[in-house]
Design a protein around this nucleic acid. Sequence first.
DNA 1: CGTACTATAGACAGGTCTGTCTGAATGGAG
DNA 2: CTCCATTCAGACAGACCTGTCTATAGTACG
Lengths: 196, 196
Amino acid sequence: MNRSASPTAVPQASARERLLAAANELFYAEGVQTVGIDRIIDQAGVAKASLYNLFGSKEELVAAYLQSRHDATSVRLTAAIEKCESPREKIMAIFDSQAKLFRSSDFHGCAFTSASAEAAAGGRVERAADEFRTWMRTLFINLARAAGAAQPTTLGRQLHLLYDGAGLAARMDHGDPSISKSTREAVRTLLDAAIS
Amino acid sequence: MNRSASPTAVPQASARERLLAAANELFYAEGVQTVGIDRIIDQAGVAKASLYNLFGSKEELVAAYLQSRHDATSVRLTAAIEKCESPREKIMAIFDSQAKLFRSSDFHGCAFTSASAEAAAGGRVERAADEFRTWMRTLFINLARAAGAAQPTTLGRQLHLLYDGAGLAARMDHGDPSISKSTREAVRTLLDAAIS
DNA sequence: CGTACTATAGACAGGTCTGTCTGAATGGAG
DNA sequence: CTCCATTCAGACAGACCTGTCTATAGTACG
């Protein structure tokens, strides 16, 4: 029973991680509703019973998949921010990191937005999306305050609006390169106007 | 055969319109993948055979639903624009009309964005979304040019980014009223910066 | 009146989905 | 070696989906 009472032997890193990797690839590329359990376990090389022993239901697997994306995005943006000195450069680094994502071949928009469009309201998917969006907005508002904005919540919200719009347009307009360029210029204009 | 050859008697306006009305309500509120054919015909009070005689498949019904939303949005925005004199006021009127949508109780985000997240790539849904987005972007670019922007395509794209971001945030953040306010101020800032 | 045409309700087929269960194989601990 | 826990492959149940078909009822028109 006490699964966590084996401190030394760590032979796992197998079933759960392979399932999450398969979920991350298939759910993100084709949608959580479209991709069935069978394709997940097929790609992961894991038995169906193991999946239900580890996660309990498909919804739990979807929630874990979204949590892993939340963590990965947090790590990626934190690393991008740490390289910069000024708050203004940190803000630009976030949009540069996003623009770099757009150029990757397996970009399919914001995972939380897509999953939320497919899932029922009030479930774990909606909660995961709320947490991610709150984290992003808080990040923008804190950077806006550090940059010396007169109204940091307004500027933070505006930056979040541009971030959302750019991600959505990059998905819907098939990666038009003008999106990143226009976004970058709009961010600069808003920063210049908001910081005295 | 010649269905259009009955000029006087107009008892129709029935099956097809009721199906489209039911599709517009259910597909938009709950998603095109979640809502099944049975619920559509149930709400419309139409037999299943009639639906397949009129539309041929569910995908065709979804395409007709999206086309009807495209038309309705076009009519709504055109009416809002016509009341204004200057191009700048017309642009603001578009965002005011969007903000008014956010306050309605049955707002659930952009129908094309949501449907596109659920549907397979390369189908009729994606084409309908492409057409709608091209129409919106052209509208913004033309207004930016009329407003005297030095780079109308860039300003038009930026306005579209804000429009997308606002619609997405309004859906994901449960209608936070700060969205409309921040969007409006950002639009003004971008207009001031782009128009000499 | 008779004759097409169309709409209706609902059964039905064929497929897919989630989640459970069975039985065999595996692999480390005592 | 023996035991026990986990994993595997896959069958299975129950539900839901799209799309077709049958049989019946209503209706415009010659």
